[in-house]
């Protein structure tokens, strides 16, 4: 038996919003420690990893490990039927071929349940090594979204260049060149408005705008986003899911052939 109840159901709605453009189907791996998902986009350029810890749920029961393969477009359609303040429960029997989503209004006066077929997905799992990144940049998630959106007008790629002074995002194309520089904030009233840089060495890497734009669909999840970079390894774009987990996107850099 698997059952996970989340009073803050809108977190789950937001997680789905942040995945559905990148992935069409994926497996949710459930264990007594929580729920995890790891999947690559169709072209195998990027990887998404989601963690929802058991202690972040209001009720969590997972008697035996199970992998629930789901069509994320269908899951997203179902979660869109939940109101933002609904309590969401996900339930499945052991070795079941379907999953049930229960949405309760906060006053318990409306209860809806939706059943969805599970899929057998044969998915590759990649081992992500622990890495000490050369540069770790934290900035407001909405600012990052805006920068990527603005620079996507100029070209297909964004160059992210990090030094001690700050971080520079650049794009070039037929209409011209765009550069956006963010300095580390000296002092801010609100922590979520800060730009902070932890740097071991300067790094400059080039990434495809198309994917960065899809990653920023997770902006609704968290006030801040963390970018971790090292020379010639994938960028990590991380959004926290409340205090229960994270969505991490990994994107391979563009490298000289």
């Amino acid at each position: 038996m698997f059952e996970a109840r989340l009073v803050q159901g809108n977190l789950l709605k937001k997680v789905l919003e942040s995945l559905k453009d990148l992935l069409t189907e994926a497996s949710w791996d459930c264990a007594d420690t929580g729920i995890q998902l790891q999947a690559m986009d169709n072209s195998h350029v990027s990887l998404v990893s989601v963690q929802l810890r058991a202690d972040g749920f209001d009720k969590f029961r997972c008697d035996r490990q199970l992998s629930m393969g789901m069509n994320l477009t269908s899951m997203s359609k179902i979660l869109r039927c939940a109101a933002n303040d609904d309590i969401i429960t996900i339930k499945a029997q052991d070795q079941a071929d379907n999953v049930t989503f229960v949405f309760e209004s906060p006053n318990q006066e409306k209860v809806a349940d939706y059943e969805m077929k599970l899929m057998n997905l044969d998915q590759e799992h990649l081992g992500i090594p622990e890495t000490d990144y050369a540069a770790v940049i934290k900035l407001p998630a909405a600012e990052f979204q805006r920068i990527i959106k603005d620079l996507s007008q100029f070209g297909e790629s964004v160059v992210i260049s990090c030094t001690k002074e700050g971080v520079k995002f650049s794009a070039a194309g037929d209409i011209g060149v765009g550069n956006i520089k963010l300095a580390q904030t000296a002092s801010v009233d609100k922590e979520e408005e800060a730009v902070t840089i932890e740097m071991q060495e300067p790094v400059t890497l080039t990434f495809a705008c198309r994917y960065l734009n899809m990653f920023t669909k997770a902006t609704c999840l968290a006030p801040q986003v963390t970018l971790s970079m090292s020379p010639e390894v994938p960028l990590v774009v991380e959004y926290k899911i409340g205090d229960m987990g994270h969505v991490r996107y990994y994107l391979a850099p563009k490298i000289e052939d």
Partner: peptide, 14 residues
């Protein structure tokens, strides 16, 4: 010219 590498080139299969 810069080329997009697949993520599978950076992470090993488990």
């Amino acid at each position: 010219e810069q080329a997009q590498k697949p993520i599978t080139q950076f992470f090993s299969q488990q």
